[in-house]
């Protein structure tokens, strides 16, 4: 049987691109990172991911940095009586054995003061700082401006 090398390669490339591999460091695992394409660079972008805490101690996400944004911040959308609001979150806890999920309509990384537009198909590094776990950098794939989840 002749292996359809090109097809396998294309699949591997696209799979690798669509779903970033989980990044494990110490007790923490960062998974399903993705971002929405920004509309120009004057408006903020948004990025999402899941942090799993495989250890016995709670940890806290306390900081963010990325070369694509001069002002990345953790924000949370809250919905109350049909009104949505956004609030800055100083730090988010990842309970022992639990996880922290950032998703549309909830917690998200607001990437402000973009240094470059986030273009669909590109990736960018995002460094998360944890109180106990230190710094972990993940490569974030950029999906379309209307993407709603990591499995586009």
């Amino acid at each position: 049987m002749k292996l359809p090398v090109a097809a396998v390669l294309a699949f591997a490339l696209s799979a690798g691109f669509v779903q970033a591999e989980p990044v494990r460091q110490g007790d923490l695992e960062i998974d399903a990172a993705w971002a929405r394409a920004s509309i120009g660079s004057s408006r903020p972008g948004a990025a999402y991911f899941t942090v799993r805490n495989l250890g016995d101690e709670a940890d806290r996400l306390t900081g963010l940095s990325s070369p694509v944004s001069a002002m990345p911040m953790l924000h949370e959308t809250t919905l109350s009586e049909g009104i949505s609001r956004m609030a800055h979150v100083e730090a988010a806890e990842i309970p022992a054995g639990g996880e922290l999920t950032l998703e549309p309509g909830g917690m998200h990384v607001m990437l402000m003061e973009l240094t470059t537009p986030l273009k669909e198909g590109a990736t960018f590094p995002l460094t998360l700082t944890f109180e106990a776990g230190g710094e972990i950098t993940v490569e974030v794939p950029v999906f379309g401006p209307g993407a709603t989840g990591p499995a586009e």
Binding site: R36, P44, A46, H75, T77, S84, H108, L111, P145, G146
Partner: peptide, 16 residues
């Protein structure tokens, strides 16, 4: 509003 990176894109993509 256009400086809304979370809720507005979610809804507009639903509209799309």
């Amino acid at each position: 509003f256009t400086n809304c990176p979370d809720v507005c894109p979610t809804t507009l993509s639903e509209v799309a």
